[in-house]
Amino acid sequence: MSLARTLAQRLVYGALLLLGVTLLCFTLMVQFGPDKTYELLGKNASAEQLEEVRRALGHDQPFLRRYARWLGELAQGDLGTSDTNGEPVTALLGRAFPVTVMLVLPGFILGNLLGLGLGMLAAWHRGGAWDRLVLGGSVAGLSLSFLVVIILLQILLCTPYGLNLFPTRGWRVDDLGSYLAYATVPTLSLVLVTLGYNTRFYRAVVVDELGRDHVRTALAFGATPSTVLFSHVLKNSLVPVLTRLLYSIPLVLVSGSLLLETYFGIPGVGKVAFDAITSGDQPVLLAVVTLTAVMFVVVQAVADACCRLADPRMQAS
């Protein structure tokens, strides 16, 4: 298949996905959601006042026309203004996004590297003591709730009942020292709660690759364990690994950050989303959903391209 054709397909598919996601959420929130005009005007508004506000906001229009208008604004990069404070949503998210990236990136990388290491260790000793230890540990890890991990680490590291090393919450970052102070506990939480899943995933991938015939051929001609693991296995497992890494990025940035930022009071995308949820701020919520969907579309395209580069069999077709 030609590259242009693939690109065109990706683009159309991406647009369709975006349309589906936003339509679903728009329907749920706007069509079936609560009417915010009452809140804007207070309890004792007259019928005329209500009508006027609705007309001004365009809420008297039929649903599909409202959706179309929203889409039109989206196409121009306009995500509307927040219901709560009237700030443009793009500015809001533009401020929050870098904070979230700074917050979750170290944990994301560390969690995957640790998982890869433990997974390789377990897979190489499949069925042995190391494997049992790692698998047993990961079962325990899978049984930890994110929330429990956060609270536990907070007690242990941020309160006088534990080591009391870090501030309990907040995000006043202006240099490396303050960054470490505020980001360490959230990072550790993220690593700890994802480690079980990551280890299992990498172990499964490596076990899969180690079982392949070409690995036996390499071993039969004298390959060392490090050649097998770091050259044959790693390069062959690039496709599933990259796919998973890329696809987890949007989830970590939005879902993962939601609890972390809410709990620690960090002004990132997750906190913005949470505030929008509690206050029923529809434009912001729609924007977060759209942002996630866009990230998925991008990730899909990147994953596709990476897999083509990683696997010579896919270059040919």
Partner: peptide, 23 residues
């Protein structure tokens, strides 16, 4: 597959919030 792709692209917390609005 398209429907699955759409659902996968909506974080569970936001879907729950949207449904909570609706219901």
């Amino acid at each position: 597959q398209y429907v699955m792709g759409v659902i996968d692209s909506i974080p569970i917390y936001l879907l729950a919030a949207a449904l909570a609005f609706a219901l």
